[in-house]
């Protein structure tokens, strides 16, 4: 893939990743965020963070397909956008929803598993975002890869956080959970090899 199309794909990724935020802002100015806008912002930033995290996770397995190597160049960008939405999600929760009421926050953090899991996932993503630069990659050497396996833990925590936060309709968290599991399965060493070997056998 030429350098030019990589540029265009990155541009598409930037635009796509910023669209949910633009829509939230637009809908806010138009009074279209329901009678409870803080709640609507909470749900939409959370959903966007999860989708972007999944897209970022999909990059590595996709890049194994011979003509899709360039996808790897979108991985960091998508991951950082996922972190951005996760930060907005957390800030909206702590700052706007709970008004920095630390006593109330501490009480709910202790009482409600899903908040604890969400916060743990955020700390994982924070570590990954800080060490996502070339400089940190060189400084950490082999440990960089090990550290960045945390993204799988973060994804599983986020799915559980989502599942527990839903009142009645669990279809969305189950669907997202299935996709994340599939993406993890694909990463298991030997999985892709087995598949390509099978394909060869069929061809014979």
């Amino acid at each position: 893939m030429s350098r030019l199309s990589t540029f265009w794909w990155q541009l598409v990724a930037h635009i796509g990743a910023l669209t949910p935020l633009a829509l939230i802002i637009w809908n806010f100015t138009q009074d279209q965020l329901t009678a409870n806008p803080i709640r609507a912002i909470q749900l939409r930033t959370g959903r966007s963070a999860l989708v972007l995290l999944m897209l970022s996770l999909a990059c590595t397995p996709l890049s194994k397909v011979p003509r899709l190597r360039w996808v790897l160049k979108l991985r960091r960008l998508l991951g950082l956008y996922a972190f951005t939405y996760a930060s907005l999600h957390l800030l909206n929760f702590i700052g706007i929803d709970y008004g920095f009421n630390l006593a109330l926050l501490r009480k709910d953090l202790a009482e409600k598993y899903f908040i604890f899991l969400g916060l743990t996932a955020f700390i994982c993503l924070l570590l990954l975002a800080i060490t996502s630069t070339k400089g940190w990659q060189q400084r950490l050497g082999k440990n960089w890869q090990r550290l960045h396996w945390l993204v799988y833990l973060a994804a599983l925590l986020v799915i559980t956080h989502f599942f527990l936060s839903v009142k009645a309709d669990r279809r969305a968290p189950l669907l997202y959970g299935a996709i994340v599991l599939l993406l993890l399965l694909v990463r298991l060493p030997g999985f892709l090899k087995t598949i390509s070997r099978r394909r060869h056998q069929f061809k014979k």
Binding site: A35, N36, I38, R39, I96, D97, Y98, G99, N101, L104, K107, D108, E111, K112, Y113, F114, L164, S165, K167
Partner: peptide, 19 residues
């Protein structure tokens, strides 16, 4: 009496920002 999802110690009055 707590609930696993929502704060029962506080609430948002619709139309207000602060709990």
């Amino acid at each position: 009496v707590p609930h696993p999802r929502w704060s029962q110690a506080s609430e948002r009055r619709i139309g207000e920002a602060k709990r």
